[in-house]
Every structure is written in C-alpha cells, then in structure tokens.
C-alpha cells in the first residue's frame, strides 16, 4: 500500500497538494495539509496514485514523499 508521507519540517502550507489531492487532503486552520482519514501517513487509493505522484513532484517545498512501508 502506497502512503503519502509529509515531512513537517519542510511543509510550508503552500496549498498545492490540497488542490491536487482534494479527495485525500483538506487544509487545516493554518493552511497545512490535513489527511481526511485522520491518519498521520494517509494511504493513497489506486485511482489517486497519479494525482499523488503529481502532488509530490509539484510541492514547492519538496515536503511530500510516497512511501511503501505500512508502519
């Protein structure tokens, strides 16, 4: 299962990922991405894998990664 990892030491809440992955991410009170499923490292459903890869490559702070491990 692919998961979306957010490096919070890099994330600046620019808001590109919340547009590109609207199904998975909302904005919190300060514009930082918030997983809609409430998890720290949300699972990426298969239909959203392209959108997730796009969000990773377009993040201006390079704060997103797709990771394979489940922990």
């Amino acid at each position: 299962m692919t998961r979306l990892h957010i490096d919070w030491t890099l994330c600046d809440g620019r808001g590109l990922c919340t547009e590109l992955l609207e199904e998975m991410l909302a904005e919190d009170d300060w514009g930082f991405p918030l997983a809609r499923d409430g998890s720290a490292e949300p699972a990426v459903p298969a239909p959203l894998e392209n959108a997730a890869a796009h969000a990773v490559s377009r993040c201006p702070m390079l704060a997103l990664r797709l990771v394979g491990r489940t922990s």
Binding site: G13, R14, G15, L16, E19, L20, G31, R58, P60
Partner: peptide
C-alpha cells in the same frame, strides 16, 4: 509563493 489562486487559476 503567495499560496493564493491568481487570474482565475488554481495554485498548482
């Protein structure tokens, strides 16, 4: 950099 939509375009 502003994180705002501009000219009717979304941020991305």
């Amino acid at each position: 950099r502003s994180g705002r939509p501009a000219f009717g375009l979304p941020r991305f």
